[in-house]
Design a protein around this nucleic acid. Sequence first.
DNA 1: AAGCTTTTGCCAAACGTTTTTCAAATATAA
DNA 2: TTATATTTGAAAAACGTTTGGCAAAAGCTT
Lengths: 352, 352
Amino acid sequence: MSMIKKNVTIYDIAKAANASTATVSRVLSNSDYPVSDDLKKRVLEAAKKLNYTPNLLGRQLKTNETNDIAVIIPSITNHFYPLLILGVENVAREKGYNVLLCNSLRDPKNEKKYLSSLFQKQIKGIIISSITENQKFLKELQQRGLKVVAFDQATPLNCCKVGFDFYAGGYMAAEHLLKLGHKKIAFFSAPLTRPSRKQVYEGFVQCMKDNNVKEFEKNVFISEKEEESHDQVYEFKNGKQLTKKMLDTTNELPTAIFCINDMTAFGVIQELSKNKIYVPHDISVMGFDNIPMAEITTPPLTTVDQPAYEMGVLSAEMLIRNLENPDTADREIILKPKLVIRSSTRDISKKS
Amino acid sequence: MSMIKKNVTIYDIAKAANASTATVSRVLSNSDYPVSDDLKKRVLEAAKKLNYTPNLLGRQLKTNETNDIAVIIPSITNHFYPLLILGVENVAREKGYNVLLCNSLRDPKNEKKYLSSLFQKQIKGIIISSITENQKFLKELQQRGLKVVAFDQATPLNCCKVGFDFYAGGYMAAEHLLKLGHKKIAFFSAPLTRPSRKQVYEGFVQCMKDNNVKEFEKNVFISEKEEESHDQVYEFKNGKQLTKKMLDTTNELPTAIFCINDMTAFGVIQELSKNKIYVPHDISVMGFDNIPMAEITTPPLTTVDQPAYEMGVLSAEMLIRNLENPDTADREIILKPKLVIRSSTRDISKKS
DNA sequence: AAGCTTTTGCCAAACGTTTTTCAAATATAA
DNA sequence: TTATATTTGAAAAACGTTTGGCAAAAGCTT
């Protein structure tokens, strides 16, 4: 005798309002099909009285339309991405879309699983920082109609892109340090496996060359192998490690250290401090990314801004335009870096 | 004459494999209904050949089952939550669930919209740190069958809970500072509007009382009004503000400052440093939360650990158990704080 | 060989919507 | 008044799946 509570459907409303389901659907999904005010009111009242909640599954199945877009990021604990997501969500909200967030944890298996699952859920658009080499699955989905915007990482895919000029960023950083009078400058990085890192490096090197800095290569510290856990903490530890190595092997310390990202810089600063070397008094340290905490630390970190929030905004706008109005959509945007000068670098040109 | 590409469905497979849709469905959703190996193989091959992708909407509509659970958090840029989400996702992944992530940005309107949308999508379970006072909408959904696990914030709702003993955390922090020989201890906080903050405060005060600390109230600095933007940066700025105020109004500085959270502590440290007061040499500073960056700053921050990752794990486990096996599910877990001693606090009992 | 169980396969209904088609009712024009 | 246009309402099909009810086929017992 257990009473099973059935969901309220448009049939129930139709009955209650003495109308047909078609009419009910029309008023509830406010179609522009004409319905008399009187009846419309009756339907609305019935819906309210019965506490009706539409079943989106039914609707989506029928219309093959959805307000959902997805974002796939490598890691949610990496400070860069939450900011980007915020950007995506803000424009999505404004334009009436929902955002499904997935993080692959830099595991291609997870990425594929998410892609597959999203596609099965009939998602029509996706914003992704893909970490798989061979993007053949993504490409297949694209051919099957999935709209994709790739950001952050380079991709072989022929799709909308929101990129960042890492090369210019590297160049810019080097330039800043030179301008402050530094001659002996170290470069700290995890292995240059990702294109982004490589480009930063190349920009940096080019600037050194352009300014006739001698023997720069001697001060390049790149750790041996990438760690399993592609975590933020890895970068931090890497900074400490490289610092130790430098302290152990170098007799004349550099006056400035550039780090491939902010987290590495924090590791460097902490390790230096442990050895009673203070930033920026004894050594200048510079990061890359401008994650939120760069302005929160003591000293605040001089760095190169990679505009995460803006990238999120642009990616979302691009995707939505591409969904709603494919013809007008841009294909590619490259964002420019911006130097953010704080207090971890010091001008040593004039003797103090 | 434009060729519209139809999706391939189980009908197409049935035709290709010379079988019925029922059979196709049974093998594709690997039901335990017996199907001959031969036919099974035929179906699988046809599916592969036609590049079949199931439409989850159809399936869900029919079965009224889903593998999706949702998490609603106040803010994704607050470092506490990504860690929690990581915990949720890890157990979800392991148990075959997908996680839908929503952040309310501390706006009750957003929270309600997300709840409503999730429910319409037939979500069956949700993990939430609700920021609405009156949780009557959530309660209604709960009565309509939604399983909910509330974490972090106290809730009037009768549901599963994963809590944290903020009071003990406050007490513990105070105790630590006293043990290090501090007598004049300041308490810094944003307004005690959230129950969590209040409880920390109460624990702290109680410890002061228990140890006969005189005139503690004089060193309590609580900012006037909560800012609109409930952001991380707000807490940071608040730390700076309170520090300024203290420096302006106090002639004898405290030897230690406890901050209601880590971000506030970072603000304090930065502002002190600006005034050439160094941590921990001149003043000890302590935080609360143990967000990841607490160990990355220089000096690393002494703080009270609120185990975000573990809370995520427990919440997810609780929810899933509640979904799959309602009888066996716990109702409430209260996590205990843990003292994390790093380098921002100093023992001043023995004169150095 | 007859009766029984088990395996296998098909038909058709159902999930909750939207939307097309058509008919009825009403208003407008002559 | 009749013919025509407009508004309104209902029935039914469709979206892609799962699954209960049958029935045919096949394998076992006696």
